[in-house]
Simulated scan of single mutants.
Amino acid sequence: MAAEAETASTEPLLKTPLHARHVTLGARMVPFAGYDMPVQYPAGIMAEHNWTRESAGLFDVSHMGQAFLVGPDHETTARALEALIPADIVNLPHGKQRYSQLLNEEGGILDDLMVTRSADPDEDGALLLVVNAACKTQDYAHIEARLPANVKLVKAEHRGLIALQGPKAEEALAALNPEAAEMGFMTLRTLKLGGVKANVSRSGYTGEDGYEISAAADRIGEIWDALLLDARVKPIGLGARDSLRLEAGLCLYGHDIDTTTSPVEAALNWSIQKRRREEGGFPGAARIQREFAEKPARIRVGLLPEGRAPAREGADIATADGTIVGKVTSGGFGPTLNGPCAMGYVAREHAAPGTKLDLIVRGKPLPATIAAMPFVPNRYKR
Rank of each mutant, 00 (worst) to 15 (best):
A2F: 13
A5E: 12
E11Q: 12
P12Y: 12
P12D: 06
K15V: 00
H19N: 12
H19C: 04
R21Q: 13
H22G: 00
P31N: 02
A33I: 07
V39R: 02
V39Y: 02
P42T: 13
I45P: 00
N50H: 14
T52W: 06
F59L: 15
D60A: 12
D60W: 04
S62A: 04
H63A: 08
Q66P: 12
A67C: 08
L69D: 06
G71K: 01
D73H: 12
E75A: 13
E82F: 06
A83G: 14
A87K: 07
A87S: 15
I89A: 11
N91M: 07
L92R: 09
K96A: 10
K96T: 10
Q97F: 05
Y99L: 09
Y99D: 14
Q101G: 04
G107H: 11
G107A: 04
G107R: 10
M114R: 11
V115E: 02
R117A: 02
S118V: 03
D120F: 05
D124W: 03
L128N: 09
L128P: 10
K136D: 04
D139G: 08
D139S: 08
D139H: 02
H142P: 02
R146W: 04
R146L: 03
P148H: 09
N150W: 01
K152R: 14
L153P: 06
V154E: 15
K155Q: 15
L161A: 13
L161F: 11
I162M: 11
A163L: 09
A163D: 01
L164I: 01
P167Q: 02
E171T: 13
A172I: 00
M186F: 14
R189L: 09
K192A: 08
K192H: 08
G194I: 11
N199T: 14
S201L: 14
S201P: 00
E208L: 01
E208I: 06
D209M: 15
G210T: 05
E212Y: 06
S214V: 07
S214H: 10
A216H: 12
I220Y: 10
E222N: 03
I223W: 01
I223D: 06
L227A: 04
L229N: 13
A231Y: 03
R232W: 05
R232M: 01
V233C: 06
K234S: 00
R241Y: 05
G249V: 12
L252K: 08
L252P: 01
G254A: 01
D258H: 07
P263H: 05
V264N: 03
L268G: 01
L268I: 07
S271N: 13
Q273K: 11
R276C: 08
R277T: 03
G280A: 05
P283A: 03
R298T: 15
V301C: 09
P305Q: 02
G307V: 13
R308C: 03
G314K: 01
G314Y: 03
T319V: 14
A320R: 07
T323P: 02
I324M: 10
I324G: 00
I324A: 15
V325N: 02
K327M: 11
S330I: 14
F333A: 10
G334C: 04
P335E: 09
C341Q: 11
C341Y: 11
C341R: 03
M343G: 11
Y345D: 05
V346P: 00
V346I: 12
A347M: 14
E349G: 09
A351Y: 13
G363T: 11
T369F: 05
T369K: 09
A371T: 14
P374A: 07
V376G: 06
N378D: 12
K381F: 12
